[in-house]
Amino acid sequence: MTSDYAQLPGLSGVYLEDSFVLAISELPHTLSFKLEAVLTPEHPSYHDPLPGERYCYANAALVFDDVTEIEWIRRSTNRFVDASGEEDLGNIDRLVSDDGSYLVNGDWGEVRVRCGRTPRLDLTD
């Protein structure tokens, strides 16, 4: 059965579609996305947006542990520059789970991750 990331317990209170991917790290048994993550009011670390910002942002990592397979469907080296001159790889447009695997895509590419654990969001602030 396919389900959207919002239904995964480790990702409640985060809005990936407007979070910025800063880097992607692939290590043995781990895939992680370094993010400037958008936290929603449901997240315990949520605070009102800072002046001039639309959302509550937090430095975070979206982590897939206990990975048995990483299948890159497509990759992109595109970079985007925001108004303040900071560079990012775009957003995570979609993250869905399907029987032990996760399909993740965005401007940076598309990857299927097979792993034994539910992905989690680790705040790094």
Rank of each mutant, 00 (worst) to 15 (best):
V14R: 02
E36I: 10
I92A: 00
L39K: 09
T68K: 09
H47Q: 11
H47G: 01
D99F: 07
N78L: 15
E17W: 00
T2H: 13
L103S: 10
R112L: 12
Y55Q: 04
I92S: 05
Y57K: 01
E86Y: 15
S45I: 02
D82G: 13
P51I: 00
P41C: 07
R75P: 02
Y55L: 04
L16G: 07
A83Y: 14
D18V: 04
D4S: 12
L95I: 07
L103Q: 11
L8K: 03
R75H: 08
W108E: 06
L50E: 12
A6D: 15
R94Q: 09
A23N: 09
R74P: 03
R94W: 06
Y46Q: 07
E71A: 12
L123Q: 09
A6K: 14
T118N: 10
T118D: 12
D107Y: 10
F80G: 03
F80Y: 12
E53F: 07
G100I: 10
E36S: 13
N91F: 04
S3Y: 14
V96P: 05
S25K: 13
V96K: 01
F80N: 03
I24K: 01
E53P: 05
Y57I: 02
P28H: 07
N91Y: 08
L8N: 01
I92C: 08
G109L: 10
G100A: 05
V111D: 06
S3I: 15
A23S: 12
V81E: 13
W72G: 05
V111S: 01
M1Y: 06
Y15W: 15
V21R: 05
A58Y: 03
L39I: 13
L50D: 11
A6L: 14
W72C: 06
A37V: 09
D93F: 02
P44E: 08
F20K: 11
N91P: 00
D122Y: 13
L89N: 04
R117F: 00
S45P: 05
R117C: 00
L11W: 02
V96C: 05
R74C: 06
R117Y: 00
K34C: 07
Q7M: 06
R74N: 04
T40G: 03
A37K: 02
V111Q: 07
E86P: 06
A23K: 04
L8E: 01
S25R: 15
H43P: 06
P28G: 11
R74Q: 07
S3N: 15
T77K: 10
R79E: 13
Y15C: 02
L89D: 03
V104F: 02
L31P: 07
L39A: 04
H29W: 08
R117K: 14
A23P: 04
W72P: 08
W108K: 05
E53L: 09
Y5T: 01
C56N: 09
